[in-house]
Amino acid sequence: MSARQDYFEQLYQDRADPWQVRSSWYEQRKRAVLLAALRQESYRSAFEPGCGTGELTAALAPRCASVLACDIAPRAVALASARTAAWPHVQVQALSLPAQWPASTRDAYDLIVVSELAYYLEAADLARFVRLCVASLAPAGELVVCHWRHDFHDRLHSTDTIHAAYDGQPTLARLGRHEDPDFLLQAWRRGPACPAKEAA
């Protein structure tokens, strides 16, 4: 295991739900806001990197014809697989992103959801991760990104820095933004390059 994989694997070995994703009101409220931000009733295909225990994956499953979810920690993958076992169109894989990005995914996904993940990536990996998210979106596909705003010991980037990296992508047009003291959620659609961004 890499040091990062070993770190997250140990968290899940110590506690089955280390961030209380199923039970905490913060997580429940954030998940409800995120689901409400999705503009389509249903999607052909969705990708959820950093799925953790699969609570959000389970909420996405009824609205998507296919879902690929992944996590770096094998224990999290096992938990998410069990959580989503009722939906045969959901796949959960152990992947270390961005290095192990799913193969043949250019233009593949109508929806990509990145929640509470990107601040753990080193700077070069974050830049690559953002580019791969955009490249993997189908034309007019939606990208939803949501992150905790408060500081914590293993954060490598601020939430504002992460979201600015997505805002800087010339083929993403912002659809919406929800900001409160605890989290920032933004949504974009992939389309032609925006003239204002091209000129910047």
Rank of each mutant, 00 (worst) to 15 (best):
S66V: 06
L79H: 07
C64N: 01
R83P: 06
W87V: 13
A82D: 07
A82P: 00
C64Y: 00
L79A: 13
R106F: 01
A76E: 00
A85G: 07
A76D: 00
A78Y: 04
L34I: 08
A46D: 00
W87H: 10
A61D: 00
R44E: 04
S96F: 11
P88K: 06
A46R: 01
T57N: 01
P49W: 14
C51P: 06
S66K: 08
Q40C: 11
H89K: 06
L111T: 03
L60V: 04
L38Y: 10
Q93C: 14
G52I: 10
C64I: 03
L38T: 07
S96Q: 15
E55Y: 12
L56M: 12
W87K: 00
G54V: 11
L60R: 06
S42I: 15
G54K: 14
P62H: 05
Q91D: 05
Q93L: 15
C64Q: 04
L97C: 02
V113T: 10
I72G: 11
A58K: 09
S96W: 07
A108S: 14
A58L: 09
C51N: 05
A65M: 12
L35T: 05
L111I: 13
L35E: 09
G50Q: 08
W87I: 01
A59T: 03
P88H: 08
T57H: 01
A58E: 11
I112Q: 14
R106A: 06
E48K: 00
L35I: 11
A73K: 10
R63N: 09
L60S: 01
L111R: 06
A94N: 12
P74K: 02
F47Y: 04
A82M: 10
S45P: 04
E41N: 13
R106V: 06
A103E: 12
P62D: 11
A61K: 00
C51K: 08
A59W: 07
L68H: 12
S96E: 08
S42F: 03
R75G: 11
L56P: 01
L60H: 00
L79G: 05
C70W: 13
Q91K: 00
S96Y: 12
A82E: 12
G54E: 05
W101T: 09
Q93V: 14
E48T: 04
